[in-house]
Write a protein that binds this DNA or RNA. Sequence first.
DNA 1: CGGGGGCGCTTGCTCCGGCAAGCGCCCAGC
DNA 2: GCTGGGCGCTTGCCGGAGCAAGCGCCCCCG
Lengths: 135, 135
Amino acid sequence: MGEPDAPGGHAVGPVGTAVGQAVGDIGAYIRAQREHARVSLRQLARTAGVSNPYLSQIERGLRTPSAEILGQIARALRISAEALYVRAGILEQRPAGAIVDAVLADPHLTEQQKHALLEVYQSFRRDSTGADHPE
Amino acid sequence: MGEPDAPGGHAVGPVGTAVGQAVGDIGAYIRAQREHARVSLRQLARTAGVSNPYLSQIERGLRTPSAEILGQIARALRISAEALYVRAGILEQRPAGAIVDAVLADPHLTEQQKHALLEVYQSFRRDSTGADHPE
DNA sequence: CGGGGGCGCTTGCTCCGGCAAGCGCCCAGC
DNA sequence: GCTGGGCGCTTGCCGGAGCAAGCGCCCCCG
């Protein structure tokens, strides 16, 4: 796999000891979250529905878990799957927009409709810069 | 691991029998998007960086592509990766009012702008048949 | 007419994600 | 002491994701 863009790279996690942003660190990040939650490896493996040796290998960076596994781990850890996906490099980090996020992820809209909606939204934001900040 | 149906809980799908053949569904969706973009299978495979036989199998539901492959396909099709992930069941569908909530909560928009945005959104949803794509 | 280049699909292979079994370690209770 | 049950880790295997090679088809151009 190549370079994950590693955009800007703010510290996404609530855990202060969060390490760098390399993909291999997804394991370290998971381990940090697990320890922060005071849960044993076997216990997390059980609630996440993965085998304990596999989770061990994931945490030490010996295996690259699939998105499905990441989702199960995220749920067991009570953290958002998006956060893990971003760390795994399969989702771009977009700090800018709750609205943008929601629109893009909505399966009810066609791609053209999404773009149209965001176009309108952006134009609103563009000329209403003083809306909340009176000069 | 069974149903990606998970924590959202409800049967969210606008697509008839939503749960179940997530694989075939996403394949059909990709093929629909590709044909809508008037691109040949080999051509999309080339720009997406996957082999053409593999893309063929994905579209016919014979293979389950990884998130990384899905991301490459999304990029090549110029659609959002989130949409594909949601369809693939690795990202949860947002609750129905996610867009509405996000718009209403945005401090950068005036009330009129919010109303206008939601108007457009509702009109899109009104006549959209979901993933349909005439033409 | 031949042949070169597009299309989509089938086949067979490699490689690795993911698991079951089992290791050594430590601590509580009989 | 020894057993039972927790911990994290190593090993060996299996299924499937993903690709290279090659098939038959159609169209275009010399």
